[in-house]
Computed example of a mutant assay.
Amino acid sequence: MQQYNESLISWKQHKPSKDAGINNIQIPGQPQLMVWQNRDHEPTNYELSLTENLIAAFSSGAETLPEVVNALNDQGMLLEDGSVFTTESFEREMARLGY
């Protein structure tokens, strides 16, 4: 099974394009439905670890941004560059990963 949509890589930019991406996701009449339609790469170990740590943070009762950040830091989760999370760096990271 394909783990990501290779067609997304060629047009992914920091800002969304105003032009339609004809035939980038599906060719009319030839839809190739895949589980990971909106994923442009397989998750990295960092992304998988962050997901697991976020689930643990929310499961332990974290609800506000400072609580989530504190939970990640308490769990030993670090940013990819090895630094600890701050509310600002967490928001930047979510914006980067969530695009």
Rank of each mutant, 00 (worst) to 15 (best):
H14E: 10
G76E: 08
L54N: 05
E63G: 09
A62L: 03
S89R: 12
N23S: 10
N70I: 06
V35I: 10
D40G: 02
E88N: 11
R96P: 00
Y46K: 00
Q13A: 14
S59P: 02
V84I: 08
G76T: 07
E80W: 01
K15V: 12
S89C: 09
Y99E: 06
I55D: 07
K12G: 04
M77Y: 01
L65K: 07
L8I: 14
E42T: 13
N23A: 14
K18F: 10
Q37K: 15
K18S: 15
S49L: 06
G98L: 02
V68N: 11
L8T: 01
E93L: 15
N45H: 08
T87Y: 01
A56W: 02
Q75T: 03
L97S: 07
G29R: 02
G98P: 01
W11H: 10
A95F: 10
D81Q: 09
E47T: 11
A57Q: 01
A62F: 03
N53I: 04
E88R: 14
N45F: 10
S17Q: 11
W36F: 13
H14G: 15
E67T: 02
I27K: 13
K12H: 12
L65N: 03
I25T: 02
P28E: 13
Q37E: 13
P16F: 15
D81C: 09
A62C: 09
Q26G: 01
E80I: 01
Q2H: 07
P28R: 05
Q13S: 14
A95W: 05
E67D: 06
L54Q: 05
D74P: 00
M1V: 14
K18G: 04
Q26K: 06
P31E: 12
P66Y: 01
N5M: 04
M94A: 14
M1K: 10
G82P: 01
D40E: 10
R96M: 07
E6Y: 03
W11M: 07
P16L: 15
V84H: 09
L50G: 02
N5L: 00
S83A: 08
N53K: 15
W36C: 09
N5T: 04
F85A: 08
E63D: 11
S83Q: 08
H14K: 03
G29P: 07
F58Y: 11
T64P: 04
G82R: 01
Q3A: 12
T64H: 06
S7Q: 12
Q3D: 09
L33V: 11
L33W: 13
F90N: 07
F58Q: 04
M94W: 09
F85S: 04
T44Q: 01
D81I: 13
A62H: 00
W36Q: 12
L97K: 11
F85K: 04
G21Y: 02
L65V: 05
Q30W: 07
S59G: 15
K12R: 13
M77V: 04
I25G: 03
D74E: 14
I25V: 14
L48A: 13
P16A: 15
N45Q: 12
Q26F: 11
P66F: 00
N45T: 09
E52H: 11
E42Y: 05
S60F: 05
T44V: 06
N73H: 06
Y4P: 00
A56D: 07
L78G: 00
H14I: 06
N73P: 03
E93Y: 08
L54P: 02
N24Y: 11
N73T: 02
G21H: 13
A71I: 10
A71E: 05
L33N: 10
F85W: 10
E63S: 15
